[in-house]
């Protein structure tokens, strides 16, 4: 009986979220365009996330290289370290870790901000002031997360590879030219493209889930905390599910 209720609640939530997301596609191209709000959100979501994304990317590249080195030495393929790390970062680790950090920072912030606006009637006040709050708050934020995450993922990949370059040189000596040549030679166009495309979907999911959770927040301040928390949890799980689908699709298309 309890399981039936949980399944019903899950399906209800899924239906509500689908309707909420569907509204995005019917509204984003219609005027009035919230261009100023979109650029403001790009600045807040993209530019202000850069230090955190950059730092985690740098550490990720450095640590991955240092962890891989002993095994590579054991197998006598130490010289292939830049190539292996490059493929791992660009194809998988860079986009996914960036998206997860992004979900933690931006998903929770959107969920809490919109949740707080909901419980303090600010969303109603916008509607009364002649504003479509869905377009002003949701469309602008979802577009900003969708376009900013790919940019952040590319920057994170670059910073990670720089961290990896430093990692390679901790116990060895590899010139920058050799390192970057090895990395670029190991990467094919079909390594980069699917990894880049999937970050758009990750960005859309983080923005949409954060907005959905915040926009439908209830139960006062407790509800705001719950919105922020569930936005991060659901976004993170969704990123892994989308990643799984992306791998399957690229495999079917013969990109692997």
């Amino acid at each position: 009986m309890e399981q039936t209720i949980i399944i019903k609640r899950f399906l209800d939530e899924l239906g509500d979220m689908s309707r909420f997301s569907g509204r995005f596609f019917s509204e984003w191209f219609k005027p009035r365009y919230e261009i100023a709000e979109f650029f403001k959100q790009c600045y807040v979501i993209g530019y202000k996330s850069l230090p955190l994304i950059g730092l985690t990317g740098f550490i990720m590249g450095l640590v991955l290289t240092m962890q891989l080195r002993p095994s590579m030495v054991d197998y006598g393929v130490e010289s292939q370290l830049p190539a292996i790390v490059g493929i791992a970062i660009v194809r998988e680790i860079g986009p996914v870790i960036t998206a997860l950090i992004f979900a933690g920072k931006i998903g929770s912030s959107i969920g809490a901000e919109l949740g707080s606006m909901k419980v303090t009637e600010q969303i109603d006040a916008m509607e009364v002031s002649g504003t479509n709050p869905y377009k002003y708050l949701v469309v602008s934020r979802v577009l900003a997360t969708t376009f900013m995450l790919p940019v952040l993922a590319i920057l994170s990949d670059g910073i990670s590879l720089y961290g990896s370059y430093l990692g390679v040189n901790i116990k060895g000596e590899t010139s920058a030219l050799l390192f970057w040549t090895q990395v670029s030679n190991s990467l094919e166009f079909y390594d980069v493209l699917p990894a880049f495309i999937k970050t758009y979907f990750f960005g859309f999911a983080v923005g949409m889930i954060g907005c959905y959770k915040g926009y439908n927040s209830s139960k006062g301040t407790e509800g705001v905390g719950h919105s922020a928390n569930s936005a991060v949890v659901i976004s993170s799980v969704t990123i892994f599910i989308l990643d799984l689908l992306a791998v399957q699709i690229t495999d079917l298309l013969g990109f692997n």
Partner: peptide
């Protein structure tokens, strides 16, 4: 919206935009 422009509404929670 045209009618709303002529009708003011003071919310119980004030609903000022925090940002």
């Amino acid at each position: 919206d045209k009618i709303r422009a002529k009708v003011g509404f003071l919310f119980q929670s004030n609903a000022l935009y925090d940002s």
